[in-house]
Amino acid sequence: MNRISQCLQACKQEGRKALVTYIVHGDPGLEHTLPSMHRLVEEGADIIELGIPFSDPMAEGPVIQRGHERALANGASLTNAMELVSQFRQNNKHTPVVLMGYANPIERMGYSKLASSAAKAGVDGLLTVDLPPEEAEALNVELKQQGLENIFLIAPTTTEARMADITALAGGFVYYVSLKGVTGAGHLDVTSVQQKVEQIRKYTGLPVLVGFGIKDKDTAKAIGAVSDGVVVGSLLVKAMGEGESHDLKSICDHLASLIKPIRKGLDEL
């Protein structure tokens, strides 16, 4: 079984809400990513979502946009992200890693090479923001062959008819985008998230995790209560790239100080 399913099944059995943490590969420096991943796991992250920087990150708010710009300036790429995941796997065999990014870098690498390199590196899933199910068929075939999950987004604007189509192809978990907007936006509506998550559950038994707009213990707890877990991104990217110090230890400590209360909040549920 794929690590993502194993992890989320274990969470379910333990009654634990899943915490997915997103950071950008190579931000603020190439050397920061690996230690940050390990620290996030230590502090209670269940899944690591590693952002692959892109020159034109259309779905991102300003915080993650700047993260992508910093990472690109440092020479981060899909290729060296795979190397990084291999290094991560030397010390961690159990935490699922999902690469999240945009279609063009994977198109450039080629779907077949991408899938085989990712599997070899120890990647577990892929989430490609601008590759909806309608355009994902060729990639799906390659990912499936390598035992990788293709994770899809469902949005507040997704109709029930589309939900059926998306969940038919989705693997790992469903990522519900909590709001109409870009990453890091601030207008979270818990009631509407709850309704939508219930709707999604009619179509799939996959865990439903919710991201966009989760910024502290309270929002994490509110959303965790109506879903299987939360994704935290902009909060961490801001801490890593726009904190007072780029010193590795202070960055890791800063991450820990943000993650601890969120983990605690989720565990209170």
Binding site: V129, D130, P132, A155, T158, R162, V177
Partner: peptide, 10 residues
């Protein structure tokens, strides 16, 4: 084709 995030598909 149509390569956009899910929010815009509808």
């Amino acid at each position: 084709g149509r390569f956009v995030s899910e929010t815009l598909m509808h």
